[in-house]
Simulated scan of single mutants.
Amino acid sequence: MTVDAHDLTQVEAVIFDLDGTMVNTLGDFQVALNRTMADLNLPSVPDALIEQAIGKGSEHLIRSVLAYQIASPQAKGVGQTCQALSVDDFFDRAWQRYQYHYKTINGQFSEVYPGVLVALHHLAAKGVPMACLTNKPLVFAQTLLKEKSLTHFFAWVFGGDSFERKKPDPLPILKTCDALGTAVKRTLMVGDSSNDADAAHAAGCPVVLVTYGYNHGQPVQNTPAAAWLDTLADLPVRLS
């Protein structure tokens, strides 16, 4: 469904989000977070919570999970003092263990969504410059793209630690457009969540959202966008 199709007729470059847009990384998050919780003697993490917390960077993800785990009745059985502790009491250790576990399994429990390679090959054949912009730490993003043989499509890759602020702040998009050498209004943001849309709207560039991503547990069609796509295989048609 398109609401602003004219916004997509003058696109000169495309910025892609990573998690939930190009690669289904839920499995990686599940494994890394649950191994982290086991190290902290905390309960396993509900899948729904992980989906809702993905997208705003690793620190937000870990803090959201810890807040839930500490407040959960299940936590009462894993330590008498757990209920009296705060997220900050767990965070440093959780961050350390999560970094270790995610690095160990990055890409092993994830898969590229159907239609992604069709879109990337089509854009590459047309000579459209592309960048990957994610709130995932840069080293994790680079490793994942390499693991999934996607690196060569992107002139630039930026992570959540590449700039002073993360999406939904517009700064990362503005900086990525600077790197691509394209005008913001002629650069398309492709993502899966309100994070991507809010950043794009604030920056002044058109945005397309996929319907299969995470979006913090909310229907992405409720987020204003130029289009909502069930598959990125439809993207080249809208750019042709």
Rank of each mutant, 00 (worst) to 15 (best):
N222P: 07
K146A: 14
G55C: 04
F154T: 02
Y98H: 07
S193A: 12
I50N: 01
K56G: 15
F158L: 08
A48C: 08
V190M: 11
A119D: 10
D47Q: 13
T104Y: 11
I173P: 05
H201R: 08
K76R: 13
T21S: 06
S72F: 02
K146P: 06
A203W: 01
V116D: 11
P46S: 07
V220H: 06
Q10V: 15
P73L: 02
T176R: 10
D39M: 14
L120F: 07
D7L: 13
I173S: 06
L229C: 12
A233K: 00
A200D: 01
F140Q: 14
M1H: 14
V157L: 05
T231H: 02
V112Y: 00
V11I: 15
K103Y: 09
D192Q: 02
P172N: 12
G127R: 07
A155H: 12
T211K: 01
E12W: 06
A38V: 08
L85C: 06
Y214C: 09
T36C: 07
N135F: 00
L239I: 11
A226T: 10
L26V: 13
L171V: 03
D28T: 03
G191R: 03
T182H: 10
V14Y: 05
C82G: 00
D47R: 12
A199E: 08
G191M: 05
Q10T: 15
R97H: 14
F109N: 14
A141E: 05
L123M: 14
E59M: 08
P43T: 03
D89W: 10
S240K: 00
Q52A: 15
S149I: 03
V3I: 08
L150F: 04
N222E: 15
G213V: 03
A131D: 05
L171W: 09
G57K: 01
R186W: 05
H101R: 07
T187S: 06
H122P: 08
G55R: 00
G159I: 00
K185F: 11
P206T: 10
V112Q: 00
I54C: 02
A131M: 04
E147C: 05
T134S: 11
L61F: 09
V118D: 15
L145D: 11
V220E: 07
N195Y: 09
